[in-house]
Nucleic acid binder design. Structure first.
Lengths: 141, 141
DNA sequence: CCCCAATTCCCCACTTTTCCCCACAATCCT
DNA sequence: AGGATTGTGGGGAAAAGTGGGGAATTGGGG
C-alpha cells in the first residue's frame, strides 16, 4: 500500500528516486506505464501489474480486441529497477507524456504510484480533494 | 476511543508527543492525514484508517472516479510511529496545512485524534460547542 | 568488418536530512 | 518523600537526496 506525497528532482539523465518506504515494497523492480486517462506516469509492482493486465485481458471479448488491448497496455509499459541510490530511470516517452522536466511529484495512490509534473499535479490535487470532501459530506463517512 | 484536549510543544524537528493514554492504543503506529475540509491534522490507528479508506473507496462509481479518490485519500496520508519518547514527527506539508508552528492542540474525537494550531482551534472549539448544544437540545438527550 | 559516437548502466562522492539514542527537568502516582 | 513516568531538548550516527565520472553496450557509418 502506497501513500504520501513527495517531491523529487529529476536529473539530466531522467533518473528519479522513490521514497524509501516505497522501495522496500519494490525490491524486485517495477513496471512503468502511461497513466491511462491522466497525464502522469503510473508505477506498479510486478505482482500488481500482472494482476491488472490479466484482469484486463479477461475482459477482451474478441481476438482483435485483445490484440489491440495488448498493444495499448504492453506497448507503453517499461520495466525498470533501482540503481545503488534507489533511483529509476524514466524513459523519455513517458516523461514527455507526463510533462515531467526537472521535478517530479510522487504520489502514493493505494496499489499504484503516480508521477506528476508540478504543473499538472496542482489542479488535479485540488479537484481530487474537492471530490473527496464532497463524498464525505454527502455520505457522512 | 479518544477523549480530551491537550496542548504540546512542537520542536524544531516537527516532533510532537501524544498523550500516554492515546499512545497505549497506537503501539503499531499511526496514519496521519489532512483533515478534509478543516485546517487540522487527523490521526488514525492503522485499523481505523483501513476501515475509513475502504468505505470511501466503495463510494466511487467509475474507475476514473476511483483513481481520483485514491489520489486524494492516499496522497495526503503518511504513516508515522513513535520514538522512544512517545513522539511522532509531522511532515512539513501537514504542519503547513494545519498552520501548526510551535504548539499543537491535541483533541480526542472518538475514532480520531486531531491536531490543531492554537489560532485555528479557538474558533473551531466555540462553534463546535454551540452546534453540539443545539443538536442535544433538538434531540432532547 | 571495424571503428566511432552516443547511450546506458554502474559506481563513487558530497551534502543534507532523518532517525535513534541520551539527558535533564517537571510531574504524577504510590 | 521517592521512584517512575512524562515533556522537552539536543547530539551523533546512519540513511537519503543529488550530482557526476567512467566502463560497458548498442547502433550506424565508413
Amino acid at each position: 500500500m502506497f501513500f504520501g506525497e513527495y517531491s523529487y528532482k529529476v536529473d539530466e539523465k531522467g533518473r528519479v528516486p522513490l521514497p524509501p518506504k516505497f522501495r522496500r515494497e519494490l525490491k524486485e523492480g517495477v513496471i512503468l506505464a502511461k497513466g491511462m486517462g491522466e497525464k502522469c506516469i503510473a508505477i506498479y509492482s510486478i505482482a500488481e501489474w500482472k494482476r491488472l493486465s490479466d484482469s484486463l485481458a479477461a475482459k477482451a471479448v474478441t481476438p482483435a480486441n485483445l490484440r489491440k488491448l495488448n498493444r495499448a497496455i504492453f506497448g507503453s509499459a517499461f520495466s525498470a529497477s533501482f540503481d545503488g541510490q534507489g533511483r529509476i530511470t524514466l524513459p523519455y516517452s513517458l516523461r514527455e507524456h507526463a510533462g515531467i522536466a526537472d521535478t517530479a511529484i510522487v504520489v502514493g495512490a493505494n496499489n499504484r504510484i503516480e508521477l506528476w509534473s508540478e504543473d499538472q499535479w496542482k489542479p488535479e490535487k485540488t479537484s481530487a480533494e474537492e471530490q473527496a470532501s464532497q463524498i464525505i459530506e454527502s455520505f457522512g463517512v
